[in-house]
Structure formats: structure tokens, C-alpha cells
Amino acid sequence: MSTVEQPDRETELAELVEQHRARRAEGSERRHYDLDDRGFNEVPKKWRKFYRHWLGAGDTLAPNEIICPVCKVVIRSVKEIRAGDRLYCMPCMSRLLVVEADDGTLVPEVVY
């Protein structure tokens, strides 16, 4: 059976706010990440490390991760995610633009 994929919205939102504040506090240096394969097997092997399943309550998003609003998969980047980034969700073929919401959170918007 697969992992639980329905994100806890309140947890997700709180995490995003916390991460965004932390990034601001740390200045403008953009962190880079070496991605590891988290067992996401819904895309060809060469793309797998860029995605993972949301594990439900207790899971958290890293600064280089964001949840696809269309299919709820966690999208991962080699860079810390910032407003203005363009990301692709290969599992559902969506193109996303990261924007900063009024409350300072980073939100992915679908670009058609």
C-alpha cells in the first residue's frame, strides 16, 4: 500500500511560513542541495530524485521542496526555492511558478 498522500494543510502552511522566515533571517545566500532518491517510482529513473510522496502528519517540507497543487506530489529542486522559480511537476505534467503570498509564504501557481 502506498504512503499517505493527503497533506495536512495546517502543518504544510506552518512549515512554509517557518522556512520562509528562516531563509530571510539567513540572508540572500541561496543554498544548493544534493538530491537523493526517495523511492518515487512514477517517473523514469533519471527524474526520480526530483520528486517524493508527502508522508502525511509529521512530514515537513525542506527549503528546496514544494507541494504540487494539482497532484499533491512533493517537488524537489537542487536549489532552495524562491519566489519567481519555475518548477515542473512531471507526474502530472504541470508547470508551476512560485509566488510569494501576502503572508510571506511561497505558493506554487499553475501556469498554463
Binding site: 494539482v70 507526474p91 502530472c92 505534467m93 504541470s94 498554463y112
Partner: peptide
């Protein structure tokens, strides 16, 4: 379910464009 992700994504993105 894993297949359905592709299908619903195709629909929304094709129509959106």
C-alpha cells in the same frame, strides 16, 4: 492512482492552455 495523476494533469493543463 499513479496513472490517474497523469490523466488529470493532462486535462487541466491542456484546457488551461
Amino acid at each position: 492512482v499513479k496513472d490517474e495523476r497523469r490523466h488529470l494533469g493532462f486535462g487541466e493543463n491542456d484546457l488551461g492552455r
